[in-house]
Write a protein that binds this DNA or RNA. Structure first.
Lengths: 244, 244
DNA sequence: GGTCGAGTTGCACTGACTGCAATGATGACC
DNA sequence: GGTCATCATTGCAGTCAGTGCAACTCGACC
């Protein structure tokens, strides 16, 4: 462990303690996701995760406040980033437009993160498909979504310069958008990841912006589901080239 | 309690066992809601509820699968009813229209039910306001919403004659609608019930149908919040006459 | 090398929830 | 009215999530 001339970059590098913390956090998360993939969310106990990550069960809760959090609460900093973006980005455009763009980016980030964490895309796809069937998991997902929702609403209210107590619009918009987003991910997951996520997300938000006409892009989705790639499509844009 | 000649309607009347079960169920629910109103959702244990309802803790779980269920799972039969309605009502109209009407009715029913269960409207209003602040409660609410969402989606798929595996539209619509509905109730609750629920619901679904334009009825909501009635407005339509 | 403090762990506890087996009330049949 | 099957209630023992507390360990810093 003893290491290395400090050099000019020493200040940049986090202390050993910090690095260890990061490592532990990652180990727990990795172990947890592996186990979830193997057995399904509700058939994994915190004790199992702790054991797999070589920490005490008690330590688990030093890093994540709940079993669900280890799945959803990847990076606490990202929320603030999203918030700032929703408030200040593209001052000219409508709240819905900005929300749409920001959430689409979020989706990309999340998928990319999972991809680099787990290695095998196909595995994630099948795992998520299984996860969607688990009521416990769905509940946790919904709960997490609700939390995000509130934050989005606050950000939108700020952007629009309206009082969240008096103006229901920000909350409505945030809720509807999160609903659509959740549905998108859910559908994508239960398809086993065989649908291009980008297109699906885009079509979904377009439908939202258009008031869900029955002839929207989502409907004639044969072109979405027809593409019979063996490679999970949501991951395509993240692999460096991927053809394979 | 002993009452009344059986008469020709005796066959209609459920057996003693059934009646007792119903009574127990109601007692538990009533006790639970009372306690929730008093102390807040997360400061009430199942044991407390059982004690207040004069049953064994174990019995509680014979009636409700979870602490949350006692709040949300009022009547299991209503779901089927909603389902049928979504599939078959108004064959000409769009899915969104039917969903809108059906959910608006649901809201009315729920509020009416609470009103007749609890007695004092104002109390419910303040309780709900408090409940919205409780993260545990929000989570439970979200989870319950997600379950309903899936059912709505299935019903809509049936109505539209599309396969829920291939067509994301029903799920998207259901999720968005539930999101909007949840936001509506949330906003109404956190206003302490001082806003006309009917109007708010209507404006919300109108916004959904219009793609959330920034100048929709929700925005100029001064007329919604301005009404300074001392009577919680959401309950107005249920009082037998209540002016108007 | 020694001290300080952050991070880890064990322990004991609460609270939700489940399966099982005993008990008690209800309803049906004679 | 008596008997028996049925079904709800209950207690008990156990699992698992999550928390507070008090030792302990080990990296940071002088």
């Amino acid at each position: 462990m003893s290491l290395s001339g400090a050099g000019p970059l020493a200040a940049e590098r986090p202390s050993l303690r910090e690095r260890k913390k990061l490592a532990t956090r990652l180990a727990i998360r990795r172990a947890a996701l592996d186990l979830f993939a193997e057995r399904g969310f509700s058939h994994v106990t915190v004790e199992d995760i702790a054991a797999a990550a070589d920490v005490a069960p008690r330590t688990f809760f030093n890093y994540f406040p709940s079993k669900e959090a280890v799945f959803f609460g990847a990076d606490p900093g990202r929320v603030g980033q999203l918030w700032a973006r929703l408030v200040h980005d593209q001052p000219g455009r409508s709240a819905l437009d900005v929300l749409r763009a920001a959430l689409a980016d979020q989706v990309r980030t999340i998928v990319a993160e999972l991809a680099e964490l787990g290695g095998d895309p196909m595995r994630w796809a099948t795992q998520m498909k299984a996860a969607q069937a688990d009521p416990q998991f769905r509940a946790a997902q919904a709960a997490h979504g609700a939390q995000t929702e509130a934050r989005l609403a606050a950000a939108l209210a700020e952007r629009l310069g309206s009082d969240a107590e008096r103006d229901p619009y920000p909350l409505m918009l945030a809720s509807a958008a999160m609903g659509v987003l959740r549905a998108t991910l859910s559908f994508w997951a239960s398809s086993g990841g065989t649908i291009p996520l980008e297109e699906l997300t885009d079509a979904a938000f377009q439908a939202l912006a258009d008031g869900f006409p029955e002839d929207c892009a989502l409907r004639g989705s044969t072109h979405l589901t027809d593409s019979t790639t063996s490679q999970p499509a949501g991951f395509r844009q993240h692999g460096k080239e991927l053809t394979r």
